[in-house]
């Protein structure tokens, strides 16, 4: 019962703050709403006894990535998006895009409908998890056991993306500095 109340409180919080992300006009408020939303989702993970994922969610998303987001928004000083006057534009385009998105989600659900299961903790009750050495140990063993290759590949992918960003950001400044050197 108390778990249910906690679930509804956390889920409501996550949804309200997620709505806040897209509805408010101030970018900082938007980013902070996202932080709050991520924290609520971490609470949902904790409620599912996935303490490790919950802690990592807060550390990585709320604590590291979103800090950089807010940092950049603050530095750029985007100000507030002005209030809209007149009817919103692009309704036909948005409708088509929305319909396409819904169709895609529907297709995906159709394709995997046989495999949809309501998650249960059967066989992995908290007591059983504790017996096997705790949540973090189990996640770690899965990550560095059967899922080692996908895990490492994902890591390399992120590294490639990072290096790519640096290269793309550098190309501009390198071109500029060589140009200025030529001029001087």
């Amino acid at each position: 019962m108390s778990a249910q109340i906690a679930f509804y409180v956390l889920a409501l919080g996550a949804l309200v703050s997620a709505l806040g992300v897209v509805l408010v006009r101030n970018p900082i408020t938007s980013a902070l709403n996202l932080v709050v939303s991520l924290c609520f989702v971490a609470g949902l993970y904790a409620l599912l006894e996935a303490h490790f994922v919950a802690a990592v969610q807060v550390t990585v998303y709320a604590g590291a990535i979103m800090v950089l987001f807010t940092f950049v928004i603050m530095l750029l000083d985007l100000g507030t998006v002005p209030a809209r006057t007149g009817p919103p534009e692009g309704i036909p385009k948005a409708t088509i895009m929305g319909a396409l998105g819904a169709a895609f989600v529907g297709l995906v659900i159709h394709a995997v409908r046989g495999d949809i299961r309501v998650p249960t903790t059967a066989g992995m009750a908290p007591e059983r998890v504790a017996e096997l050495g705790g949540n973090s140990r189990l996640v770690g063993e899965l990550l560095f056991g059967p899922y080692l290759l996908p895990f490492e590949v994902a890591g390399v992918l992120l590294l490639v993306a990072l290096v790519g960003t640096v290269v793309m950001a550098k190309r501009d400044s390198v071109a500029k500095s060589t140009a200025s050197r030529r001029n001087s």
Binding site: F52, A55, V58, T59, G63, N135
Partner: peptide, 9 residues
């Protein structure tokens, strides 16, 4: 069971 991670988070 995530003790230290909680502190980091």
């Amino acid at each position: 069971d995530v003790g230290i991670l909680f502190v980091l988070a």
